[in-house]
Nucleic acid binder design. Structure first.
Lengths: 210, 210
DNA sequence: TCGCTATACTGCAGACTGCAGTATCTGTTG
DNA sequence: CAACAGATACTGCAGTCTGCAGTATAGCGA
């Protein structure tokens, strides 16, 4: 039985406390979803695998007729998590449909691209609002695990900056595209600024970020 | 037959010119891989689906005994791509194992987290080098489709900034974690700076980025 | 002619998603 | 107190996508 990164993410959650799968799929994933999203469906399957592998143990309780399964980490589970933390992480993966739409924008209308950029900007703003609300609840002392807030702040910093980057990029791109006379931007003189700046990366100074 | 975003990415590629699947899987994906990565295996399957749906047409040629299948977009394919470009994009998805490792760092040693951060930083630097080389080849007039360089520059700007963000975040996080006396950073006073800054997002001014 | 690398795929197992469906419990409102 | 909404707690299924291993041919240099 090989374990996936998802297995270890789940073990990490279980290392904090025991959870029912429902909690795992709803509340808890609130933090992980921003940098390690998993579908609810998958969690129900994956946690069973962890139990089968002896890394978690399940306990079934009943509320009337309705059963609830909760899972706790085992010593073997803690060991596996500890070992995983010593291995190097996979490179971050980015999947941004809006960039693909920009890349192939010449097959559509300019207004289609502008509309996509605006949606991306709004999504980024909305996510930042969610993150700000989370941060505010921490400030208000409503965080579920205050002793873990330093670890949470590390990823919070990244995720917030990531969505801010999207927002700023979308604003910049829309402003540039709006000046184009052709859908493929063949008349755009800003292209050389970007390409020259990117080519400089790693050779001493780098240019500004959008 | 429902089409996935991958289908449209492939159609976008075919809208530029015809390709063999091998080319699609190797050269071409060079650009898409940074913001819309797909496994080689999947492309072979997906392009067949496009042909079955009448959105692309295949042509088989032979080099001696070895067959090569190349694909061209059909009018129906161009139509489908055009329609797709009018729909709103899915939100960008981020999957960063290194953030999960930071989030659960208290189950391992502090040095494990520092090592993970360093790997992430190096990966980000390496990717920026690749992107810089691509940009340099564009400056050298070696870009395969110079008339599309404006569209390419849009995503290039984002992808470069994304990897620069990872690099800077990893440097910042490593410097902070190095000062911690506990693996969970419970003694870290930097946590309030992050949380307060993130909570301010959207309420007028935002703080600095790492 | 040998061996290396590039070309050009296929099969298979398993990871993961999204949606629909089932059933129970709890709190609110009329 | 009955009706209903919303939360809890899942399962089934079809399909997407990945990663690895395996197969086979072509072209090139030593």
């Amino acid at each position: 039985m090989t374990l996936s990164p998802t297995s270890f993410a789940l073990l990490g959650l279980l290392s904090v406390r025991s959870w029912t799968t429902y909690e795992l799929a709803n509340q808890t994933t609130r933090s992980l979803q921003y940098f390690f999203p998993r579908a609810e469906r998958h969690l129900y399957a994956e946690i069973k695998r962890l139990a089968d592998a002896g890394l978690a143990k399940s306990e079934t309780t009943f509320t009337g007729k309705r059963r609830t399964t909760s899972y706790a980490i085992t010593p073997a589970g803690r060991k596996a998590l500890r070992v995983w933390l010593r291995t190097p992480p996979a490179p971050p993966a980015l999947e941004a449909e809006v960039l693909a739409r920009a890349f192939f924008a010449d097959s559509g209308r300019q207004q289609d691209l502008l509309a996509s950029l605006d949606v991306a900007r709004e999504q980024a703003v909305a996510t930042q609002r969610d993150l700000a609300a989370m941060a505010q609840s921490t400030l208000d002392g409503e965080a579920p695990f205050p002793e873990r807030s330093s670890l949470g702040a590390l990823s919070l910093r990244f995720v917030t900056d990531f969505h801010r980057l999207i927002e700023r990029w979308a604003i910049w791109a829309a402003a540039e595209v709006a000046t184009w006379e052709h859908t493929d931007g063949r008349d755009w003189d800003g292209v050389s600024a970007v390409v020259e700046d990117v080519a400089r990366v790693g050779h001493g100074r780098s240019g500004r970020t959008v």
